[in-house]
């Protein structure tokens, strides 16, 4: 920035005119070079961020397709493949790091990270959502912030990008929506534990986030509405499930059939809700 400016002659009154114009033109040519470099870098980062978003969405779909499989062998395979996909995304974060390193080593790259944070964060948010879903399926628990940061570090433990509490919390809020889908899918395969577990989990998350004042994280207060809807759906599933478990405890085939019907009803309602 500082090298862009060339000092104006301090007693410039006499040299005003053509010389001022020439002087300005050369100053602005430097600005042009600076803005061009910035714009190109911005474009490259946006492309990387978008591909991270795409790959993260694919990972989430992959998990939804196979994670509710009744065979534990298939489930393990799904999670292994999920990890492999997660590493593919990780490579893209490495490319972001490389891009920022091209500004300069160390401090310069870090300054660059904050400067270009807005270009990177949409992809990062989607990735955190996918990673936390994968982690939930692996551990039945919530991935801690420091674990997310560790996953997004290189082999030497250097962070590829910085995960802020804000990124993390917004990602966890999105996770509740995925878990709602996961719980309803699980119901159709006769998995009765999962909806109850998920319900408890989402309740805990929602309760904590309800304690965050809206002015502190405006984006979260909007996402909380979505979480509330997700939780209500899960609770309805659990309600129906509990009644059926009591009624047909000795007839698993009836349970499976009813679960399937409940799911179809839910899908229909969701479809209708969308049309409204």
């Amino acid at each position: 920035m500082a090298d862009v400016d060339v000092l104006m002659p301090s007693e410039g009154e006499s040299s005003v005119g053509v010389s001022r114009k020439q002087h300005l033109m050369s100053t602005f040519e430097s600005y042009r070079a600076e803005l061009d470099t910035d714009n190109e870098r911005r474009e490259r980062l946006i492309i990387l961020s978008r591909s991270i978003t795409q790959l993260s969405k694919k990972l989430i779909f992959h998990l939804h397709r196979n994670a509710t499989s009744p065979s534990s062998q298939q489930k393990d395979k799904c999670l292994r493949e999920g990890r492999a996909k997660e590493r593919e995304i990780w490579v893209n974060f490495g490319k972001i790091k490389d891009e920022l390193k091209s500004i300069g080593e160390g401090d310069e790259a870090l300054k660059g990270y904050w400067r270009w944070n807005r270009q990177v964060s949409p992809g990062l948010e989607e990735y955190i959502e996918a990673l936390s879903f994968l982690y939930y399926l692996e551990h039945k628990s919530l991935v801690p912030l420091d674990a997310v940061q560790k996953t997004l570090s290189d082999e030497a433990g250097e962070p590829l990008v910085i995960v802020t509490p804000e990124d993390y919390i917004l990602g966890m809020s999105d996770l509740t929506g995925e878990l709602m889908r996961y719980a309803t899918n699980a119901l159709s395969t006769g998995d009765h534990n999962t909806p109850l577990e998920v319900c408890e989990f989402v309740r805990t998350v929602k309760a904590h986030f309800d304690g965050i004042p809206p002015h502190m994280l405006y984006k979260l207060s909007k996402k909380q509405e979505e979480t509330t809807r997700s939780l209500e759906k899960i609770e309805k599933v659990c309600y129906a499930l509990r009644l059926r478990l009591i009624e047909f405890a000795d007839k698993p085939e009836v349970l499976a059939m009813m679960a399937k019907r409940a799911l179809e009803d839910a899908a229909e309602r969701e479809e209708k809700g969308r049309e409204d």
Binding site: S141, L142, L145, P165, E166, E200, T204, H208, M216, L217
Partner: peptide, 24 residues
């Protein structure tokens, strides 16, 4: 097991929220 897991989840969230508060 369920109770202890809920506790872990709570702790994880509380510490993240605390960090968020510091940032904000």
């Amino acid at each position: 097991a369920t109770t202890s897991r809920a506790q872990t989840v709570s702790e994880t969230l509380s510490s993240a929220i605390e960090l968020l508060e510091n940032d904000q």
